[in-house]
Design a protein around this nucleic acid. Structure first.
Length: 198
DNA sequence: CCCTGATTCGC
DNA sequence: GCGAATCAGG
């Protein structure tokens, strides 16, 4: 697979959007995240500037490794990466979708034994965190219970007794059960609310 | 462990 | 130019 114009453009777009290299690679298909990163560098847009400090890679002083890497490794044939290219179309979602009124109130069909995390009761949670959550929920993958894996955000959204109930499903940050945004509202140290000074 | 981007260097 | 291997960090 080569870098056609379209693929490069998509790469640029996604990179500009702040998507991670691995996400871009998955989206494009047929390439690894390394390929994406390599291309990004070659295109000279390695630096994601714009607004807000990039939290990811800090501007680390890279003096000079000096020592050459022991690159005597035998390099076997590169993996062809057999990907059938599953390409789900991404619908453009710009405008805010009107919240559909929960007309139907089904009986509580809550799967028993589901550890529901403390829902943000709009209590004393950082407005910033809340904003981030609602922002993120638009992009949520809306997974069902069975689709959850160890690496998908298990934050439930909506009313379990309603049709529109799903799990966030975004990639979790680390070993945590939620994505970054949801971790933000889920694991708020008591100290931050009691003694919140800012 | 999972992830992220950055860099090197054989191809 | 490409990208796997590696590095470096969270």
């Amino acid at each position: 697979m080569s870098w056609s114009d379209e693929r490069v453009e998509k790469l640029k777009k996604m990179w500009a959007e702040g998507q991670s290299a691995s996400q871009i690679a998955k989206e494009l298909g047929g390439v690894t995240r390394n390929a994406v990163i390599g291309k990004v560098h070659r295109l000279g847009l390695s630096n994601r500037n714009g607004s807000g400090g990039g939290t990811t890679t800090e501007a680390a002083p890279k003096p000079k490794p000096a020592a050459a890497k022991p690159r005597g490794k035998a390099k076997p044939a590169a993996k062809p990466a057999p990907k059938p290219e599953p390409k789900p179309e991404l619908a453009e979602e710009e405008t805010v979708e009107a919240a559909s009124p929960p007309a139907s109130r089904a009986k509580a069909i809550i799967p028993a034994g589901q550890p529901l995390p403390p829902q943000p009761s709009a209590n004393e949670i950082d407005p910033e965190a809340l904003a981030k959550v609602s922002e993120v929920e638009k992009k949520a993958k809306k997974l069902t219970l069975m689709e959850l894996t160890e690496r998908t955000c298990k934050w439930p959204v909506g009313d379990p007794a309603t049709e529109d109930f799903w799990f966030c499903g975004l990639p979790v940050q680390s070993g945590k059960p939620y994505c970054e945004a949801h971790v933000g509202v889920a694991f708020q140290p008591m100290s931050s609310r009691r003694d919140r000074k800012r």
